[in-house]
Nucleic acid binder design. Structure first.
Ligand SMILES: [Mn+2]
Ligand SMILES: [Mn+2]
Ligand SMILES: [Mn+2]
Ligand SMILES: [Mn+2]
Lengths: 228, 228
DNA sequence: ACACAAAGTTAGGCTTACCTAATAATATTG
DNA sequence: CAATATTATTAGGTAAGCCTAACTTTGTGT
């Protein structure tokens, strides 16, 4: 049986490994992500290794075993289902759900997860647009790319975000940009890559490239020339 | 700020103190209730005392301070609201909700409690018939007495139970006795005080006095001669 | 290739929450 | 009331999960 305290490591390792850029998870990354010091993390990694949840060699970094990956996906499933439930059923904003979900997700009842998932309407994606794994660990796919890769004139729809922080999510909320909103890319400023978008009833905003790379969209016009 | 680990002590002390019979909570009772050893409990009591949540003198036993009582009632509120939510909204049986609620109740969000309470229809009593304190700590009252105190011919309704154990609750469930069910006291056997009741569509059962003292009822006929 | 920076590792220490065993205080009862 | 049983307390110990400081290994740039 997997301990609650293992779960946060597994989830973190999974998330770090999956981050598009990074290939292998390292101790210092994990420590940073979990807000712990490297020796603490190292100590725990040895245990996770004994439990056959990961393999770790300084050369190859931290890699989840098959079992470890399965467990990770299960934690992620629980986390995202709680976030979904808190948002859809309990009407919390998308910036509030993460912390609360972290507290609730360690309750140990598959049945409970099933029930709150059903109460939420069993969607495929959480309030941040992240895919919810099914019980076997399969993830629904969706074509998403950073808004930053857009060309002028592109029409797209927001399918997710790359960051969960309050600051970021509240910023988007203030701009009135939310999940499933349609954006029209009016202008791209070559100088710094910032993007002017129009949306809703005449709302518009100029988004810095730092923000635009964290908003995930998909084009709504066929044959759009946006990158990737 | 009250720590999660304080909460279980406060809740336990409150419950023990309130148990009709016992007046003062003692270390060994607490230890038994919490499934810990006396030295562990004593150690923690000293801390709770420093935190001004209880007073403890071997003579007077363990007594909650005003603040301690307020906090206890808040934990109990959270616990009972989670139980209610799990039962009413998530459709768990009354024997399943206690353990799950214990795991969920330490999530730290007043707002969450408010929302799930509203989703449950804001009832005054939990799935075991126990009163849910309001935010100020006030408990709704209800006239309840053990079924054991009945006289023959009494008609009464089940308003609660005195014990949360799986075994007990599942036993009642097998007998098809649940909250708000009407019971007719057909016969009382003087020999051992067991009670034959009829209910629902010709269901009937002979309840041992051990069971009958744990079922809480109120008479439905005016001027019933049942005790207390 | 060598010097410096970054990352990993070891050693040792702290706190919390638990425990057992032994002792002291208090109740119960013949 | 003395013997005994129960309850409370003290002393000392363990394991988990964190830490800092110091050292070692690895990677990088000139
Ligand atoms: Mn999250
Ligand atoms: Mn999410
Ligand atoms: Mn309960
Ligand atoms: Mn209850």
């Amino acid at each position: 049986m997997i301990k609650t305290s293992d779960e946060k490591y597994l989830k973190a390792i999974y998330q770090i490994s999956l981050a598009e850029n990074s290939s292998k998870a390292t101790i210092s990354e994990l420590a940073y992500y979990l807000d712990l010091k490297p020796p603490t993390v190292l100590e725990r990694l040895k245990i996770l290794q004994e439990e056959k949840l990961i393999t770790y060699k300084k050369a190859k970094g931290i890699v989840l075993t098959k079992i470890g990956e399965k467990e990770s996906l299960n934690v992620i499933r629980k986390h995202r289902i709680w976030e979904t439930f808190l948002h859809k059923v309990c009407k919390f904003s998308w910036s509030e759900v993460h912390e609360l979900a972290e507290q609730l997700q360690n309750a140990n009842s598959e049945k409970l997860i099933d029930r709150i998932y059903a109460l939420s309407g069993s969607p495929k994606f959480d309030p941040h647009g992240d895919p919810i794994p099914d019980k076997s660990g399969k993830l629904p796919t969706s074509e998403r790319r950073p808004l930053l890769n857009s060309v002028e004139g592109c029409k797209c729809v927001v399918l997710g975000v790359n960051e969960d922080s309050h600051d970021f999510l509240n910023y988007l909320t203030e701009l009135k940009i939310g999940l499933n909103d349609k954006l029209f890319v009016e202008k791209i400023f070559v100088f710094d890559g910032s993007i002017k978008v129009k949306y809703k009833n005449n709302e518009n905003a100029v988004l810095s490239s730092r923000v635009a790379e964290k908003i995930l969209v998909t084009c709504t016009k066929p044959n759009c020339t946006c990158k990737n």
